[in-house]
Computed example of a mutant assay.
Amino acid sequence: MTSPYTVSIRQTDERDATALATLRRAWSEEQAGHPIEDDLFEEDFAQWYAAEAPRRTTFVAELDGEAIGMMNLALFERMPKPGRPASRWAYLGNAFVLTAHRNRGIGTTLLDAAIAHARDRRCARIVLSPSDRSVPFYRRAGFGPATMLLAHVLDS
């Protein structure tokens, strides 16, 4: 679908922590259905982002310099095996596009950037834990059931 405006996708850095926190807050409030009071959230987010940056690549979608969507990949290095090149796998998370900008191909463009990055980093696979609403989106992009994985859900 073509868009009347141009959205750019780029990798983020430490200067983007505030914009990413704003998107994360918007996602959280959308899920909750109401504003969430948390005066320390932006500071907590910035600390989390700085700690995660060495193993996580975040992509942001921007329209006229404003962050309107994001997605990230956490990379996990696989234990080396004799006679095999080093490899890794990625966990895709925190995919979100502001409501006003959905259904315009922005999520697909973010996902394409994340998949290309995972390929460039020689990832063996990308896994994710989709919401019920996002399953069709990921299936259209070629994701399927992860029958090779098991999970033990811990009480939180």
Rank of each mutant, 00 (worst) to 15 (best):
E14F: 04
L40Y: 09
Q11W: 03
S8H: 11
I36M: 07
H34Q: 13
I36F: 04
L40R: 13
A17E: 09
P35N: 08
A32D: 03
T12E: 03
R15A: 15
T12Q: 05
D38A: 14
A19H: 08
Q11V: 12
G33V: 07
S28A: 15
V7A: 03
P35H: 11
A19C: 10
T18P: 02
G33A: 07
R15I: 07
R10Q: 10
L23R: 00
V7H: 01
I9F: 10
D16L: 01
T22H: 13
R24V: 04
E14L: 15
R24Q: 11
L23C: 00
T22C: 09
A17Y: 10
S8P: 02
P35A: 13
L23D: 00
V7Y: 04
A21D: 01
T12N: 00
E29L: 12
L40G: 11
A26K: 04
V7G: 02
Q11N: 03
T22R: 15
L40I: 10
H34P: 01
S8F: 09
R24K: 14
R10N: 06
V7R: 03
D16Q: 05
E37H: 12
D13E: 08
I9M: 10
R24I: 06
D38C: 07
D39G: 13
A17D: 09
D16Y: 01
